[in-house]
Amino acid sequence: MDKLTLDSIDATTHLDQLEAEAIYIIREVAAECENPVMLYSIGKDSSVMLHLALKAFYPEKPPFPFLHIDTTWKFKEMIEFRDRKAKEFGIKMLVHSNQEGIEQGINPFDHGSSYTDIMKTQALKQGLDKYGFTAAFGGGRRDEEKSRAKERIFSFRNKNHAWDPKNQRPEMWKLFNTRINKGESIRVFPISNWTEKDIWQYIRRENIDIVPLYFAKERPVVVRDGQMIMVDDERMKLEPHEKIETMKMRFRTLGCYPLTGGAQSEADTLDAIIEETLGAVSSERTTRVIDQEEAGSMERRKREGYF
């Protein structure tokens, strides 16, 4: 693979265009939708989304709350970051967890894919229903995964939060149709057209703060099924043959710590991360364990209501 160098990328115009498109979409939703919310997952894409929301309405604060679906298995540093940012920007941060799931002791070690369903998908549905949100912004990008590549920017969900890929509304020019029937809701993806590279370049250009886990550092890890899993707390269950090693590593995506693989890396500055990303040999979702289960698994999950 040709390695693209930083100097060869002068994406000012390109990033401005993507930023303008996202801000236009965010403003349209605020103007037309009854009860919007921005989902906040604490990752780099969420940091960009939050930044765009702040810019879109300035000098007003974003006229909607933010919602974090907490599986209770996020990295500690993520939760600290979330609370710090909410305070710093003076935004309303709602947090929802699936209490039933917690009471039943659902965890990523023993419950596999039903963990994702219960603590993420079901929790998200509960959170949206609890507050009666009619539109939810998400940071999904079309370059992440094949089924997302076909999803509209305004994506409709029936009352069970299910997506029907065969019955998507035509989306023409910039004329977004935000009208819904009772019980339906919309997922809105303002950064649909951004790539991972765009995200990183924008973070650098705008000097956006991101969770330190993205930067390489010595961390306690276990190598499991070829994935490098960080031991973030004492709940991590080790197999008999596994042992905790300390490695200089970083994460390309963030999620629940037992399900998020990191990679060995020396990239401890933003420029080093971008350099590494532009020459990347893996697209970012390979480090999320669930996506590789089977062909088309993401599309199936989304039809069932996964964000």
Binding site: A11, K146, A149, K150, P165, K166, S192, N193, E299
Partner: peptide, 28 residues
């Protein structure tokens, strides 16, 4: 051809977006 139905039928039903960058331009 990303959607399952499309792979089964071997046709492109919906719009799929792809992103790439060369030394000279970014493309969608």
């Amino acid at each position: 051809d990303g959607l399952l139905a499309e792979r089964e039928q071997g046709i492109t039903i919906d719009v799929a977006y792809r992103y790439f960058t060369t030394d000279h331009r970014s493309f969608i």
